[in-house]
Design a protein around this nucleic acid. Structure first.
Lengths: 213, 213
DNA sequence: GAGTTAATGAACCAAACGGTACATAATTCG
DNA sequence: CGAATTATGTACCGTTTGGTTCATTAACTC
């Protein structure tokens, strides 16, 4: 008897799980952990609330799964950055710009990080194998920084985490605080022309900082 | 008959109101809007839940009052910054450092802003007279920027809001994302020595950026 | 194709939660 | 003082919410 292709099957654990995860990501990012409703997540899928408990165990475990998947995605994006053959200053600018683009492309991830910070990263700490997730981003910058220092082009009193933090801070702010900042200063942070301008500013600032004096 | 001093009175509308506001600020900043419990706020005060509804009308209006008070505080702090007699570069560095200090001194305000951003600033928009709250911070930088440009010391392709955004982004990130960033990179963002270092980095970066070329 | 297991759905439940009704005591004011 | 007003506490209510029970069907195994 011909087996149905996985995509045509009515019962498909992987699809159901993935759908719940995708919808849950959006709902948690929109309403926060407490504000997210299990019923709403279920309603937005083609399955029922029962499946959340069947596959994940409960609201909190679902949130943990969402967090883990989100961080796995960003790690992959970071590892795909390739700036090895550019002069140090250009390489740093390129890393900054790609980071900037990635943040704008995945606002739901940024919002999830905000949510997690409000809760003092208590859930993140439960996902053990996310511990040294910062390493890839740092080592990428480490290489470029070392090259710049050797060439005498970069200042020597900063490390890779310092640089990453300045870049992250700027990028995260653009997305995470666009609502309040946009309101208070009457600037639409997500408009295309504004975004291009801010992107250029980040590159200018980071390079100017590293090459100063 | 001798009237009791207000501070000794058992019934004191102002004190009750202020106490509720203070406790609510902390609870909303810790748990987010939905995560904050009206009962918890009441329990942490010397009064009862009933008073929240008597003075504010409900959970949402209490949150609005908290937001408004928090933003009023930061406006006052910004207006107290005085950098008029310093050379432009030193003045910008000073503004950046004072902003940095203020953020670290009021983490609950930063967290409240994060909460509000998760909700797309929908509550902030309801507090009408907070609309152009950004103006003071911008005009302070505007003056310094103008002086720097006239002296030929500063670049001319950025405005006050650009500068304020870079400073804000860095300062907000330090406080708002200290939990996740600290976890992923093993750096305690709130430790004294780390904080001093980050403070200096911000000044270096902003001045280098503005004076580049 | 019979038996077993994985996956799913509908209805239901107890606790938590925001909010209120009612009673009452402190304060003010004529 | 005594009436009117302001402030406060207790007990309770209806709804929402995360979670569960029980039954059932699709899919896989041999």
């Amino acid at each position: 008897m011909a087996r149905l292709a996985p995509s045509e099957r009515i019962r498909d654990a992987d699809r159901t799980r993935a759908e719940l995860l995708a919808v849950a990501t959006e709902v948690f990012a929109t309403h926060g952990y407490s504000g997210a409703r299990v019923d709403e997540i279920a309603e937005r899928t083609s399955t029922t609330k029962r499946m959340i408990y069947y596959y994940f165990g409960g609201k909190e475990q679902l949130y943990l799964a969402v967090l883990e998947a989100a961080y796995r995605n960003i790690r992959e994006a970071e590892q795909s950055i390739n700036a090895g053959d550019l002069p140090p200053a250009d390489a740093v600018r390129r890393i900054a710009e790609l980071t900037f683009d990635h943040h704008h492309a995945h606002p739901e991830f940024i919002r999830l990080v905000s949510v997690e910070n409000i809760h003092q990263a208590e859930h993140l700490q439960q996902v053990e194998h996310l511990r040294d997730l910062g390493a890839p981003a740092a080592s990428l910058l480490e290489d470029v920084l070392a090259r710049g220092r050797e060439a005498g082009a970069f200042r020597t009193d900063v490390d890779a985490i310092d640089v990453h933090m300045l870049i992250s801070a700027y990028c995260v702010f653009q997305v995470a605080n666009s609502a309040t900042f946009g309101f208070l200063f009457g600037r639409d942070m997500l408009a295309d022309d504004v975004r291009r301008r801010h992107r250029a500013i980040l590159g200018d600032a980071v390079v100017a900082w590293l090459t100063a004096r």
